[in-house]
Structures are given as structure tokens and as C-alpha cells.
Design a binder for these strands. Structure first.
Lengths: 322, 322
DNA sequence: TGCGGTTTTTGACAAATGTGAAGACACCCT
DNA sequence: AGGGTGTCTTCACATTTGTCAAAAACCGCA
């Protein structure tokens, strides 16, 4: 749990680390007894255990059940026709970052249970998704692919669409299929030309192989990610909003019922379209925060999600209105 | 991990337990910080965490990988054509009970990963199997059934075939199909009559639905379980052994190549036969100890197992001879 | 409102765990 | 052989965690 420790290197024999960890976690001995049995000082036992934790030998997690069977979970499930809803406690209200990290963490621990060997998982872009991939443990999924659902974009934050998918792929020991093009081009002709490029074409084609997807709901306001990252201008947003857009899903605008709201940007964008995100085996919506309530509702009504991860305050808000 | 604690009851709100556990295990705060945040004494935090552990909210386990990728594991896998081999460190040599508990524990943590929704799991009888079921955490598997592969028997130990399957079913939240008849009758006619009983017949029929099985290898000697529990006499064993029997699999005798060795007891026994244990999706052999080396080799050669759990000393012995 | 009985919380102490600097050890290079 | 270099271990101390008995809060009931 606590901070860095131990002398540098990866240490000699792993055997003894395993033995110490076994005695400590499986047999419940304390460090003194272990030290005696192994014939080393207790401090060494501390080091072995530390190394075990660092190397991922020791896995500590909270059970999923309490979060899945919470009354808010069941309500969300029923209201929006979901297969399951993971609701984490909101924690300190006001601290949006803390809550976001909780939701991301929860998504990261839950995700492996939702995957199977052979899956192809589409991944969207966003802070939550990024934190999810970053913070999760490595859990190999056999014969698995991760594909990037949207093109790249200028990054006002420290992460990119590539990073989201690459990191997740790494965590799952999956092959990563990136989409090495900008999310938006300055004109439709160029976008069209790029889409026709063999390499890009193949990558876009791979999107059709996705049987599962992980995404967030983006807000459709002047402060949204999509504006800050330069995909759309505040004017664009205003225009879309006037035409009913209430959420952003993988860069595309959708209205309050989750229907795609086409517009001037579509032709210039490269990435998955909403129609292709319907009917997947798994659609995992990972989002939270008061500003995401409206977009989440839109995405949920559109039927894009079969599963959701959020916090209790957001869940309450989702259920409260309408 | 440590001993009993806390005042009796199941405590009021679970919310705060979850919150404390989240802060402690997911966010790495120490108990003082948590106490401050929650506005309670640190002692209360200790109690919440204790309760979380008791209620199964907090799951601590060692990763499977090190045990599956150990060189002995790979050797076993290759030598006996297994899909995977879980080899735990032998620990204190000479202390057979300690090793058996390790193997049982390992089997219990590994098993859920080998199961899927919809499985029907056949379960044999034995100390190892019993300890496995007893010591494992509850991990619900959807739409799952556990069936008892052998009839019941007098119990010189504290457990029965019923208990093995019942407890495992409980751990997996599975339906349990018991076989409420003696494993052995005093004469073939009676056994025949029992087998024809509608209720028993249906239960025996259910054995055919098993797609997975968990079993141990029994030794074929005068000291074996099968003698101590009164199924066979020392004389029976001697006879079978003279005819090549080297192991006991679910109460039936098999030779060094794992072929069924028929004999006088078969007609009087009620339970699965070796031929029906071949070709399952999963055959999990869980055994260890020097006396089990010969029987395990027989069972492995017979192709009954696709997966195995054992300790490193036993693994070495299995590989060493022949 | 006051009173047994019970559950929950807490403060003070005890035990277990974590840390940093110093020491031991092995290995390699000359 | 000698000395440098890096790893691994250990000692002495700091921090964190666990325990117990006593106090506080709670609850139903007269």
C-alpha cells in the first residue's frame, strides 16, 4: 500500500518471495514467524512482501457484488434496461477528481470480468478511460484485441486516444490496433482521401470486428473536451446544440434520445459512427459528474450501453430527472 | 487474516464499511486519515475493516501466474499433455498436512477461473477435495450445477462425499445434485436394484451431463482411503493390485496406464465409471504426497486430467520416474 | 422519563509492520 | 590479492495496526 521502498533491483530468487507471500497471505503467519521459518531477518520478509506487491504477485481488491447490488445499481439497471450497473460511493462531494478516479478504478477492476478470450474491444478517448487503463492491474485476456475507436487529437491534457488504447491493450496483454490519423481534418475531401488510404481503411474496417466497447459520454457544451481538444469550436457546439445535440459519443453528436445528429463536422471526422456502436455484446459506459448527467442520459436512452460504471451522486441524478 | 475480533452483531450500515475499505485498499490512506475523514475513532476504522474482511468484501489472493509458469508446471504440462499445471511450493518437507492444505487452497483459488456459466461439475470425494471446498471463498458461477460422482461411505474422517459436493456447490452458488446411496453395497443385486430406483437413476443419469470434473488420485494400498473408509478390504486391494491396479479414481481401480481394472467390487458399487470421466472439457486432478505419485501417474497416463494442482515435491517425483 | 439490556464507539496500551542507514556479501576487473 | 561496485540483508527506530475493557449511544418498554 504505502510508498516506494526496497533497494533498486528486481532481486535474486523469486521463490522466496512467493514463499513469504504464501505464508503471509494464505497461511496468516506474521512476519516474525515467517522470518524464523525462512531463516532471515524480519526486515527481509518486509522486503520480500514489498517485492511481491510490486511484481503483482499479491492481488488485493474489493468484491464487485456490493457495488452491483446497491439499490441505485438495481434502479439504474431497471430504468435504462442495463445488464448491470456498478455504482461506487461518491466519496467527498465537490472533489470531482477523486470521484472520477474512483469510477475509473472501479471500471478497471470490473472490466476483466466482462471480457472473454477472443474479444475485440473498441476503446474511446477521455480522461476517465485513460485513468481506467492507467490504474488497472495487468490481467491477461487470451487472444484479445483492442482497437482505437476515434482518430487522434491535439491533447490539452496529458493523454491521447492512442495512449488510452495502447495502455489498455498492455494491461490486457492484447494486440493494439491504433488509428493513426487525426480525429478531425480541415476539410471533407482530405478526410475522404485519408479514409481511402489502404492502411487507414483496414484499420477502420477493424472497427467492424469489435464485439465490445468501452466509452464515456461527453458533454455537449462550450467547456467540453471536444472543444478543449480542438475538434469542435464553441460555435460548432452551439449549432449542434440548437439542432438537439445533447451528448458526444466517440466524437459524434447525439440528441437526447441518443440519435445521431449529423452535421458539418461528420464528413471531416475519422472514427466510428454511432450506428456501429449499437448491438454490441458489451457497451460499457464509464462516466460521472454533474455535467455528465445529461449526456449520459442521452447515451443510455440511445441504447449504446449494456453496462455502466458511475458514482452514487451521478446515479441519483440520472434517475432523478425525467 | 488474524483471529476473531469485533463485538458480536453484523453492525449497522454497510456503507461506511465499504467507504473505509475503499479508502484503505483502493486509495491507500492509513487508518488515521480514514478515521479523520469519516469522523470516527481509529478503532472504529479497524472494526469496519475487520467486518469488511469477514463479510468477504475484501479479497486478497496471490496471482496464479507464478504457479502456472514455474518450470515444473511447464514440464508436467508437456510430459502429460495437460492444458495447465498449478504447482505450489512444497513448504516444510515432511509436513504432509501443510502441503495438502496448500494444494487444496491453490485448487480452491484456481477453480473459479476454470469454470464458466452453465457448467455442470462432477466432484469426487477425498480429504484434499474437502479442504479445497472448505477453504475457498464464495465465488458465484451463474447457472451452475455440482454433482456428486460417487455414493456415500462410512466416514473415518470428518467429511463425506455429500459434504464435498454440498460445500463446493455452496461456494459456487450452484445447485447441488447429491447421490444419496452408499458407495458400496453388500451384494450386486441390491446395488442393481438401487440403481434402478427412479430417483437414483435420475441422479446417475445427471452424471452424464457433467462437462467438468474435480477429483483426486487415490492410492491402491492397504493404507488407502478406500480401505479405511470400508469400501474395500485389504484383501480386495491385494487382489486388484495383483491384477495391475495402481490407482483409485472415484472408487474404481485403474492400472498404471489408467485403464479400468474391473473386479468383484464394480457391480456392488454405485458411482461414475472411469470411461465416463474421459473427454470432459476439464478434468482437474488435485493431489499431492509421495504415496500419491504412483496413482497420479496412472491417472495422468489414462488421460483423465486436463489440469492438475500439486506441490513441487510431488511434481518432481511425477516427472522423475519413468 | 427512567431503566435494563444490548450494540457501537472509543482511549490507552500492545503488537505488528515499515523505514533508512549501515553492514555483509558476492562478483568482476585489474 | 585488492578494491570497487552493486545487491541483499540487518539493526534500531518510527509508524501503523490490532486489542481490550470501559464508556457512550441506542432501544424498547414500563
Amino acid at each position: 500500500m504505502s510508498g516506494r521502498r526496497r533497494t533498486p533491483s528486481p532481486s535474486g530468487s523469486f521463490e522466496i518471495v512467493v514463499e513469504a507471500a504464501w505464508l503471509y497471505y494464505n497461511e496468516g503467519l506474521n512476519q516474525n514467524e515467517i522470518a524464523r521459518r525462512l531463516g532471515v531477518s524480519r526486515a527481509s520478509v518486509v522486503n520480500y512482501l514489498q517485492e511481491g506487491r510490486e511484481r503483482g504477485l499479491i492481488r488485493i481488491r474489493l468484491a464487485d457484488e456490493p457495488f452491483l447490488t446497491h439499490s441505485l445499481s438495481l434502479d439504474l439497471q431497471k430504468r435504462f434496461g442495463l445488464k448491470a450497473a456498478y455504482v461506487v460511493p461518491a466519496g467527498s462531494p465537490g472533489d470531482d477528481t477523486a470521484t472520477l478516479l474512483r469510477v475509473a478504478k472501479a471500471a478497471g477492476t470490473w472490466l476483466p470480468a466482462l471480457l472473454q478470450a477472443g474479444d475485440t474491444i473498441g476503446v474511446a478517448w477521455g480522461r476517465t478511460i485513460h485513468e481506467m487503463a492507467e490504474g488497472m492491474e495487468t490481467v491477461p485476456v487470451a487472444d484479445c484485441r483492442v482497437v482505437q475507436l476515434t482518430g487522434s487529437m491535439a491533447t490539452p491534457y496529458g493523454f491521447t486516444a492512442e495512449l488510452c488504447s495502447a495502455r489498455l491493450a498492455q494491461r490486457l496483454n492484447a494486440r493494439c490496433i491504433n488509428l493513426h490519423v487525426p480525429a478531425i481534418l480541415s476539410n471533407a475531401a482530405l478526410a475522404e482521401a485519408l479514409r481511402a488510404e489502404p492502411l487507414i481503411h483496414a484499420q477502420l474496417h477493424a472497427l467492424g470486428d469489435c464485439n465490445k466497447a468501452v466509452f464515456a459520454a461527453g458533454s455537449c457544451t462550450a467547456e467540453s473536451h471536444i472543444v478543449l481538444s480542438g475538434i469542435a469550436s464553441a460555435a460548432d457546439i452551439a449549432g449542434y446544440r440548437a439542432r438537439g445535440a445533447r451528448a458526444v459519443l466517440c466524437g459524434r453528436f447525439v440528441d437526447e434520445a441518443g440519435r445521431h445528429v449529423p452535421g458539418p463536422l461528420d464528413d471531416r471526422m475519422i472514427g466510428i459512427t454511432p450506428d456501429r456502436m449499437l448491438g454490441l455484446e458489451l457497451g460499457l459506459l464509464v462516466s460521472c459528474g454533474p455535467d455528465k448527467v445529461e449526456p449520459m442520459q442521452a447515451v443510455l436512452r440511445g441504447g449504446y450501453a449494456s453496462h455502466i460504471v458511475t458514482d452514487s451522486a451521478t446515479a441519483q441524478a440520472l434517475l432523478g430527472e425525467g
